[in-house]
């Protein structure tokens, strides 16, 4: 547990520093730093290759900005088999502009793109709650696409004490 707790954060800090140094020095960026740059500096954790591919696919190449998305999960999940999730937003839900999709991504799960919720303005508001499985401590990402093409994200880190994926 202590290993999986500490290393992603250290890796993140290292790559932040490396990315900053690389950008200022115009040096060659490593693959991880390219991925970080591609998904924006607000990303909480350097996405691995698979996560980067999923993010690129769902954002349609648009920048993913942090904001407007509330991803409510427990700080500590004692049972990774049942972890509650509530996703909400203050984005409009009108016929002219609405949240057309909400993607839930769990970085270190065997199948990280856990769910996609395709919505319409008929819902009136985005407030989705469900329960998910988590293999280990990781960041969870909720990504929203609006009908006019904006992509917003919310992130939260959940400490998992009992593996829920086998």
């Amino acid at each position: 547990m202590s290993h999986s707790e500490g290393s992603p954060r250290r890796a993140f800090l290292r790559s932040c520093a490396a990315a900053a140094a690389g950008l200022f020095a115009s040096g060659t960026l490593s693959r991880a730093e390219q991925l970080l740059a591609a998904t924006g500096p607000e990303d909480p954790e350097v996405p691995n290759e698979e996560i980067a591919r999923i993010l690129k696919e769902i954002s349609d190449g648009r920048p993913i900005r942090r904001g407007h998305v509330s991803l409510d999960m427990p700080l500590v999940a004692e049972d990774g088999r049942v972890v509650p999730v509530i996703i909400e937003t203050d984005l409009p839900m009108t016929a002219e502009n609405y949240v057309k999709a909400v993607h839930l991504i769990v970085d270190h799960n065997p199948d990280p793109h856990l769910a996609a919720f395709h919505l319409t303005a008929a819902l009136g508001r985005v407030s989705i709650s469900t329960r998910i499985k988590m293999k280990r401590t990781t960041w969870v990402r909720a990504i929203m696409q609006t009908s006019n093409g904006d992509v917003w994200a919310g992130y939260t880190r959940v400490l998992v004490t009992l593996n829920g994926c086998g």
Partner: peptide, 22 residues
């Protein structure tokens, strides 16, 4: 059709989902 969800086995056993509706 007002909503459509695509799930994986990462949703917990006996799936619950709540959402708002106008």
């Amino acid at each position: 059709e007002v909503a459509r969800f695509d799930w994986t086995s990462g949703i917990s056993r006996d799936p619950v989902v709540s959402f708002t509706l106008r």
